[in-house]
Design a protein around this nucleic acid. Structure first.
Lengths: 218, 218
DNA sequence: ATCCATTTTTAGATAAGTCTAAAAATATTT
DNA sequence: AAATATTTTTAGACTTATCTAAAAATGGAT
C-alpha cells in the first residue's frame, strides 16, 4: 500500500498537524524527517496524488480524513509495540522508541489485533500517550503536568515528558511508575517545588521533576 | 549494515547452499528470490565486494564464514519470531511465515536476546526447524520423516514438512502437535500406510501423512 | 511600494534495486 | 567437434527517494 518512506511522512505530518491544524509547512516536515525541504516537496506532491493529503503550493499541507486514519494506524502500531517491549520484554521506557520505529511498519492487521488482545487492550503507551483504536480514533486523555496540580489534588501518573535515563532511575527510586497515585500535599510558589505523597511516603520534589511528569486527574 | 534486499539474498543463498554445498547457481538464486537472473548477478557481485560470499563468473556463489553467520542470524530471528507468533499470539503454524519474513529484519541485538529469554530459549521453531544460537551455530537435530520409522519405534513430533491449513486441522483432530509422542505399531509395505499410537489411542494414517510429519527419535 | 530575507519549488544528478534485450560463456546433443 | 540449447553476464533503462544548486514566490521591514 504505502512505502516505508511514505508511512514515515504520514505519521510525522500527523504529529505536526496537532501543533498547527491550519496546515503544515514544507520546512517543518523536512526538519521533522531530517531531510531537505526539496525532498519534502517531492514526497508531499506524491502523497497528494494518492489523496492522503491536500497540498497547495507555497501554502502548506493538510492530511485528508483518509490520511489521518492511515497515520493514526501507524501510531497505534508504534504504541502497541512499545507496550509489548516494556511490559513483556522488560525494556525501560526510554529504550523502546527506536525499535518501535521499525516495528510500526510491519504489515498485518491480524498481527496487531492479536497483539492488542495479548496486551489486554491497553489505552496508553509506556510514555502515557493514548493508543488510538483500530479505526484511528483517539480518546483524548486529561493528561496534564504534575506542576499544574494544586495542593490536595491527586493524580495518576500516566507518563513522562522527556524520558532521559537518569530521570527514569530517579523515578524508580521513589517507586513512581505508570499507574502510581500521587497526591500533592504542599506547593511552594517561590521555587515551584512540591511535597507529594505516594503510598504513605512523602517526597520533596523540585520544579524540574514536576514539569516532566504527566498525571491524569480523576 | 545490510539492506533488506541484501539480507534476503543472504538468507536464501544460505538455504540453497544446504542443498548444493559446492556452489549456488545464479538461476537458482533468481528463482528463489522471485526475480530475474540479471538482478541476481548484480546483487551477488555487490555482496562479493562486501566479503560475505565468493563469486566466480559463470561458476556460482558460496557464502563466506562471515556471510553464513549473518544469514544464520537472520534465520534465528525469523524462527524466534515464529515461536512468538504461535506460542504467545496463538497463530496457526501455517499463518506465521509471511509476518516472520518482515519481523526478521528488525534491527536490535538486545531485542532478540530479550525475546529469546521471554520464549524460554526455544531450540526449534513451530515447524520443528532448529533455531541457531546467537553465534549462528545450528545444533543439528535428528529430525526424520515419520515414514522412515519402523514398527515399535517411537518419536516425538517436531514439525511438518508442508504446513497446509487442511493438514494442520487433520493433525489437530488427532491431538498431534509439537511434542506429541508417536509410536509406530504397524507399517504396511504395500501402500506405506501406518497404524500409530498416541496416548492410548490408535490411528490409521496414510503415506501422505507419514511423509509430511517430522519426528525426533530418542 | 520596493527591497530583502526566508521559504518553497524546480531542475538535474545520484544510488539502490530492479527490468528487458542482447551478447558471451558453458553445457548438451548429435 | 560442430551445432544447438541453456545459463549467465553485460549494457542500458526505469523507479524510488534522496541530494545540490538555482529559480520563484511569499512576507516583512523600511
Amino acid at each position: 500500500m504505502f512505502t516505508l518512506a511514505e508511512e514515515n511522512y504520514l505519521k510525522n505530518i500527523f504529529h505536526l498537524q496537532q501543533l498547527s491544524p491550519e496546515g503544515v509547512s514544507t520546512n517543518a516536515i523536512a526538519e521533522k524527517l531530517d531531510t531537505k525541504p526539496s525532498s519534502a516537496t517531492d514526497m508531499v506532491q506524491k502523497l497528494a496524488e494518492k489523496d492522503v493529503l491536500t497540498y497547495i503550493k507555497y501554502k502548506g499541507t493538510t492530511l485528508t480524513e483518509n490520511g489521518k486514519k492511515i497515520a493514526a494506524n501507524i501510531i497505534r502500531k508504534h504504541r502497541l509495540w512499545e507496550v509489548f517491549l516494556v511490559e513483556k520484554l522488560n525494556f525501560q521506557w526510554d529504550e523502546v522508541h527506536e525499535i518501535a520505529e521499525q516495528l510500526e511498519h510491519i504489515q498485518s492487521e491480524d498481527l496487531i489485533a492479536r497483539l492488542d488482545k495479548y496486551l489486554e487492550y491497553p489505552s496508553v503507551d509506556p510514555h502515557g500517550d493514548p493508543i488510538p483504536d483500530s479505526n484511528g480514533n483517539f480518546k483524548k486523555t486529561e493528561k496534564k503536568l504534575l506542576s499544574k496540580l494544586q495542593p490536595s489534588q491527586t493524580g495518576i501518573c500516566v507518563g513522562v515528558k522527556e524520558s532521559a535515563s537518569d530521570f527514569l532511575k530517579y523515578l524508580d527510586k521513589r517507586n513512581i511508575a505508570i499507574g502510581t497515585e500521587i497526591s500533592v500535599l504542599e506547593k511552594d510558589d517561590f521555587d515551584d517545588s512540591m511535597t507529594i505523597q505516594i503510598k504513605n511516603e512523602t517526597y520533596f520534589i523540585t520544579k524540574k521533576v514536576t514539569e516532566n511528569l504527566y498525571v491524569q486527574i480523576n
